[in-house]
Design a protein around this nucleic acid. Structure first.
Lengths: 210, 210
DNA sequence: GCACGAAATCGGACCGCGGTCCACTTTGGC
DNA sequence: GCCAAAGTGGACCGCGGTCCGATTTCGTGC
């Protein structure tokens, strides 16, 4: 088991962070190295693709020791999660505070449909980083960004007055939006995006009360 | 990318194999080594747990070179899949040819409910091997045993006369039965098995027409 | 300002394991 | 018995992850 990394800025779902003042102080050199590492990682990912990027290469590109990478981000997955953080934050703000139908203001069903569309687009665009940021096994479900999604979907379900086990229905809905599943359906099974969208709308219709 | 392993006996879903006469001939020494490897692997898994078993240890225990293990099973996941094969076959026979409500004879909705129960029990019992037999990324959905499940569930959905996109509804239902998800819900989120069962029945109710 | 010491941080040698490679051996049809 | 094809095994590689002695940072006392 990896020692828990000292990554205070990404431990909590990023959209919730503005509410917290300062979680922890970080030494100047540590902060500088984190910045350099993230920059280097981003560049390398853009250059050769997420799953071709080795931890050693990131360390070298940031002119930092390998141990530092692991100290900062815990493991490979942690690094990828941190990389996604910025994009995820934009997404999160869109569905939490942005304009309808994604953001507040629209009825929950429309918001859910729009949420699914957004996730599917996001999954298509950042497929490789998202997959690289996904741990294996059940640890996959402990992804910090996922917690935000769970919160959001279950809130919408409750708001829509759905009867039944909201927690489990949330998992079912999010299951449909699983990055790996979507990638499989699109690429291996060759289902067009429109069909996946229609499937999502249909699923929402079946779960929510008329 | 791993070279495709020469594992004719596990390439196809095992429950469908009785219908095929002989897929390919395997040299005597190869067959002997496969048997020895599977025995050794089974023993080691029982001894120290699936994710503590190294490929080298399996090779050593079977008194075989490391390269042979990879030639036979392709990679670690392939070995675990082969290990599961026997148990999966029993399960498959149960829902394909066994007595109702799991097997044919009962109405499709009851069969679906029973199918979910069986999968959840199976997932709970063989959690670690199932997780070890699961590849990362979208490759996870190319698991041969999964194809049988997909076939079965979509057949039941069609038989029940569900309107909508059967293929996608099948994926949604199977998503609920994902081993990693179930493990997460049971262990990390501490949901009792009865609740998961109720959730499954509820989901089936929502998807199938009244 | 400055010296100092504890604590946090760094970095690269090191380890274990999954996976590849290829020269050598075995098999089995002829 | 011959020989092409199939199979073998262990040296080898790359990468993720750990460890620990060396180094830097920064609050403290002066």
């Amino acid at each position: 088991m990896a020692a828990s990394p000292s990554t205070p800025l990404t431990v909590l779902p990023s959209a919730l962070l503005p509410m917290v003042s300062v979680v922890e102080t970080e030494r100047a050199d540590a902060a500088r190295n984190r910045r350099r590492l993230l920059e280097a990682a981003q560049e390398l990912v853009a250059e050769v693709g997420a799953n071709q990027v080795t931890m050693e290469a990131v360390a070298a590109a940031a002119q930092v020791g390998k141990g530092t990478v692991f100290r900062r981000f815990g493991d490979r997955v942690g690094l990828m999660v941190a990389l996604l953080d910025l994009n995820e934050r934009t997404n999160q703000e869109a569905f939490m505070f942005g304009p309808p139908p994604l953001g507040p203001g629209a009825p929950p069903r429309e918001r859910l449909v729009a949420f699914g569309e957004q996730r599917m687009a996001f999954a298509a665009e950042h497929k490789d980083v998202l997959l690289a940021a996904e741990a294996c096994g059940s640890r996959r479900y402990e992804h910090p960004a996922r917690a935000v999604l769970v919160l959001h979907v279950s809130a919408l379900l409750r708001e829509a007055g759905v009867e039944g086990d909201v927690e489990l229905l949330t998992e079912t809905l999010l299951g449909y939006l699983d990055v790996a599943l979507l990638a499989h359906l699109r690429e291996t099974r060759d289902l067009p995006a429109e069909r996946l969208s229609a499937g999502w709308a249909d699923l929402v219709r079946r779960v929510l009360p008329a």
